[in-house]
């Protein structure tokens, strides 16, 4: 018979090991990608795969000579921040009205908005491509900002709504009685109080925009192409070069991974909003 204390420590051990196993499984592809990026093309293809080798920077030098990494990185940065800003400007007022002036249709509106995320993007590719063509938005950063804003808006509204829902209505009513206009009420009371939830929304939007590939590949060619397009450009014409592909992928992922890692506390808090009351 195990004592209560032993049962508890056994449970901690089992759960802990499972968590580590899962985390390592999820992390392994990234680890392997970074590792491969320092191999030669021959080593990258070797069977069995090699864990120990003499690292080389030749893949990175090749990328630097073949393409302007910072051009793509700048595009990624501008597009991600641009559409996150635009998204927040739309999501905050929408969530404000839904959270604090709820009507009978609010819940179904929220669900309907989320349901648009279930549509396969390829289903609207042709109409959007044609619209962009007529509007002169193909291969422009503005074009991608518009698309990213719209595809992420449902999630952003939902997250901001959840954050606002946690704020007692009384506080806003107190502000109204104190003489605050709607703008003052939002900017000086609501936003500062919900900054945690807003930060995680911003973070998630940045990550989603940074990693988006489908629309960037289809709507841009070079001028507005972000890092995802750069990665894709290494896959086709000259055949598959695993080491170079790994190097460019590492370069594309690194900024957002580091950023996400720095902000992980915010992110976890935001994503588990409302999960525990």
């Amino acid at each position: 018979m195990l004592t209560l204390k032993q049962t508890r420590s056994l449970r901690t051990l089992v759960l802990g090991s499972l968590a580590w196993l899962l985390a390592l499984t999820l992390f392994f592809p990234i680890f392997w990608m970074v590792l491969t990026s320092f191999k030669t093309e021959v080593e990258a293809f070797a069977t069995p795969p090699q864990l120990f080798f003499s690292p080389t920077l030749e893949n990175y030098l090749h990328i630097d000579s073949r393409s302007d990494y910072f051009h793509f990185a700048w595009n990624s940065l501008v597009i991600s921040f641009g559409s996150t800003l635009a998204g927040m400007l739309l999501a905050v007022p929408a969530a404000y009205s839904m959270a604090f002036f709820e009507t009978r249709r609010t819940k179904s509106t929220l669900l309907w908005m989320l349901s648009t995320k279930m549509l396969p993007p390829v289903g609207v590719l042709v109409p959007i491509y044609l619209l962009f063509k007529s509007a002169g938005l193909l291969d422009t950063r503005l074009g991608l900002v518009i698309v990213y804003t719209l595809i992420n808006l449902p999630i952003m509204v939902w997250m901001v709504y959840t954050a606002f829902k946690e704020i007692p209505k009384d506080i806003l009513e107190a502000a109204r009685l104190d003489g605050a206009t709607t703008t003052q009420e939002i900017c000086r009371v609501l936003l500062p109080i919900s900054k945690g939830g807003l930060a995680s929304t911003i973070l998630l939007s940045l990550i989603l925009c940074w990693n988006e590939a489908f629309w960037s590949l289809n709507l841009t060619s070079s001028a507005a192409a972000p890092l995802t397009a750069l990665v894709a450009s290494y896959s086709s014409p000259e055949g598959l070069f695993w080491a170079k592909l790994s190097a460019v992928s590492t370069l594309a992922c690194a900024p957002i991974l580091i950023f996400g890692w720095l902000c992980q506390k915010q992110l976890v808090r935001g994503l588990s909003f409302g999960a525990v009351k």
Binding site: P168, D170, I171, E173, A174, A175, R176, L177, D178, G179, A180, V189, P192, I193
Partner: peptide, 28 residues
């Protein structure tokens, strides 16, 4: 509401959590 010259004390106090006591009182 703001123009009625009334002040209300709420059951939940409804203090502004991000402001100090003196800021809470001076907000209006």
């Amino acid at each position: 509401p703001a123009k009625r010259n009334l002040a209300m004390v709420f059951q939940t106090y409804a203090l502004y959590p991000h402001m100090s006591v003196s800021k809470n009182m001076s907000f209006a």
